[in-house]
């Protein structure tokens, strides 16, 4: 098992960082998703042994991570904060960290060069880190995490602050990593960033694990949740009445002359009905928008489900 969390809770005084998470994660690639402040970094700090759980236990690759040199040989970690020495070159920095990993000077330099080549920084590896762009720094940080060929790579928001080209480069590098059958846990607050890497997600919010599984599994969990739809229609009152009568809307709210806001548990049936109504010319709908397409809304829905409010 890659990660085993058993009722893990981490408190900072009276503030809850992570709240009673139980989880068994098999080897492979997984995405840790959650809005800012959800507890992702705390969870990663627990997994990398930097923090002790207040309650519960953490095991990574079958071992307790706290102060465990054996485990540290097998994991690579890219923290969410930069923390690089600006006054040294990329090669010096990666070599230094690889030496601390336990390699001889010559071996560490060889592994560092190899890692920097993999992140496509060979050309620039003798330049000072202070002269690097954000994307180059991220790739250097990735190089230090993979230089010692770990079995399990943990990345905390690796796409943060990257431009589209740098994002694409990072995605390609991580896809290579996954293709080599190595395990990966990648945190992000943006779903599409990690959708191209894995279909296995952990959804965390407010320190709680709201859901875990594939996108389909999470989708089916949400299928019975009411979703909100906004329409701009010429005769909103008439449409609202018809939707309520037909059982296609749970709640309706008319705002102004043309705005209709409704919630439905039958999104499929609703779109079928509206499509037909438009084609028959019964309603003139100029705009239709689902407000629940952002990750935050998915979290809000899951949070309601979690609290039994849905």
């Amino acid at each position: 098992m890659l990660i085993e969390l058993n009722h893990v809770t981490r408190l900072y005084g009276i503030v809850i960082g992570v709240n009673d998470i139980t989880l068994d994660l098999p080897e492979g690639a997984h995405g840790l998703l959650g809005p800012n402040g959800a507890g992702k970094t705390t969870l990663l700090n627990l997994i990398t042994g930097q923090l002790r759980p207040t309650i519960g236990s953490v095991r990574v690759l079958g071992q307790s991570p706290r102060g465990n040199p054996e485990l540290f040989r097998r994991i690579g970690y890219l923290p969410g904060t930069e923390g690089m020495y600006a006054d040294v070159s990329a090669l010096e920095w990666v070599t230094y960290l690889t030496r601390i990993q336990g390699y001889s000077a010559a071996e560490a330099a060889r592994l560092a060069e190899q890692a920097l080549e993999r992140v496509r920084l060979t050309e620039h590896m003798h330049r000072k880190i202070s002269a690097f762009s954000r994307g180059m720094r991220q790739r250097t940080r990735l190089a230090q995490a993979i230089a010692h060929e770990p079995d399990f790579l943990i990345l905390d928001e690796p796409f943060s602050g990257l431009d589209p080209i740098a994002r694409h480069t990072m995605t390609t590098l991580l896809q290579d990593w996954i293709e080599r059958k190595r395990s990966l846990l990648i945190s992000s607050h943006v779903l599409h960033e990690i959708e191209s890497l894995t279909r296995s997600f952990l959804l965390i919010s407010g320190g709680r694990l709201l859901a875990s599984g594939s996108t389909d599994e999470i989708g089916s969990l949400l299928s019975n949740m009411p979703s909100e739809v906004r329409l701009k229609v010429q005769s909103p009152r008439q449409l609202a009445a018809e939707l309520l009568q037909g059982g296609l809307a749970e709640t309706v709210s008319i705002e102004g002359e043309r705005d209709l806001r409704l919630t439905t548990v039958s999104a499929g049936r609703l779109s079928e009905f509206l499509g037909q109504a438009i084609s028959e010319g019964r309603y003139l709908i100029t705009e239709m928008r689902s407000t629940e397409d952002s990750l935050q809304d998915v979290f809000n829905s899951l949070m309601k489900l979690h609290r039994g409010l849905a």
């Binding site: 990398t48 054996e70 540290f72 904060t81 923390g83 020495y85 990993q101 336990g102």
Partner: peptide, 18 residues
Amino acid sequence: EGRSWTYLSVRPHGTLAV
């Protein structure tokens, strides 16, 4: 303060060596 501690703390005996 430089936030470089994390890189050291996930390495075998890293912080003690530092």
